[in-house]
Design a protein around this nucleic acid. Structure first.
Lengths: 168, 168
DNA sequence: GCGCGGCTACTCGGATATAAACTGTCCGAGTAGCACTGG
DNA sequence: CCAGTGCTACTCGGACAGTTTATATCCGAGTAGCCGCGC
């Protein structure tokens, strides 16, 4: 087994996005607890809870404690982008971090003016990453939900029925 | 200190890109050993060697052993893109890996036809990532080198002089 | 003088430790509902 | 019957381990140059 899977985005991003969609579908029924969310996707409940916490801090979800508590959307899905979800979990830092190694050796003797302009490699990487972030920011969870419902009509009621049915 | 720096791209990518540029500048002087490359950027030599190995396997560099051995560019910088370098080191896998968690719980009872279409979240993430990869593939190392030389004219000769000068 | 053989120094390449991050689990503080009690 | 109060069950939130990945280092196989020797 030699599966290469590096530069991986935390799976928490996928979990969080799915949960946001589900929270919208279940929105009228009040908060949904971590246990129920996890059951709906076959995920470890405690870890899912840990992954959703940053979304609360980011203002995407609200959490209520107590007997009938759980998570709820803090704002409509149309105002939440994939970029918001990813930034909440993975952090705002960029994927490529230039260490300015050019200043360590060969270029150490160059005048400081040579470093006014950013490293050309860094600039190119940042530019490409910006494209990525722009595409993510242009995509709201509402549009994704719309796509999902288009692929499988009646998804909303189906989900609500599944959750209404008593779990074994 | 709580600096968030996740979803990080391996620093080997930056090292490799810089080394490719330098190998082009030094191209006429024969192979450049890991030790000299590392000295030029203040990097750990053994680890840099480890990072450059995938570039050899990817056909970007060629390595020659022996007394005056080292690394050399396998093809001109105009035929090497940032995407090539990143794919060589980080692997060809995509950053976002959809685990299809939708099939685990709520949607388990849906007919198989509902899963013919890919997960809407996965589709959106892949689309954004594709933009990123496209931008990286459009950028050759030659164009980056051109930018660097534009910012600091005479860089080529300066680098060659630094390497010609005996190290202390 | 010239060719050849052995030697040496240096190279890459992979196997081996160490540190960091991600993944997963557990328990406690706190709260909202609810039942009970007294008026 | 109704309001107040204490209790209980359930929630999130953060503190605590296990496992994979990234980082760093070291040593061996192998090669190219070079020196010395013999012809």
């Amino acid at each position: 087994m030699d599966t290469i899977e590096i530069m991986k985005i935390s799976e928490g991003v996928e979990w969080a996005a799915h949960c946001c969609l589900l929270l919208d579908w279940m929105g009228e029924d009040g908060p949904v607890s971590t246990a129920r969310l996890a059951a709906g996707y076959g995920l470890p409940a405690a870890y899912l809870n840990k992954q959703l916490q940053p979304l609360v801090k980011a203002g995407i979800l609200t959490s209520t404690a107590g007997k009938k508590g759980g998570f709820r959307l803090a704002r409509p899905l149309g105002e939440v982008t994939l970029m918001d979800v990813l930034a909440a979990i993975e952090g705002p830092a960029e994927a490529f971090q230039c260490a300015e190694i050019r200043q360590n050796g060969v270029w150490a003797d160059l005048p400081a003016s040579a470093f006014r302009a950013p490293c050309a490699i860094d600039a190119a990487m940042r530019g490409a990453e910006l494209e990525w972030r722009r595409a993510l920011a242009a995509r709201t969870l509402a549009s994704i939900q719309s796509d999902a419902e288009l692929q499988a009509p009646g998804l909303r009621t189906q989900v609500r029925e599944w959750y209404a049915r008593p779990r074994q």
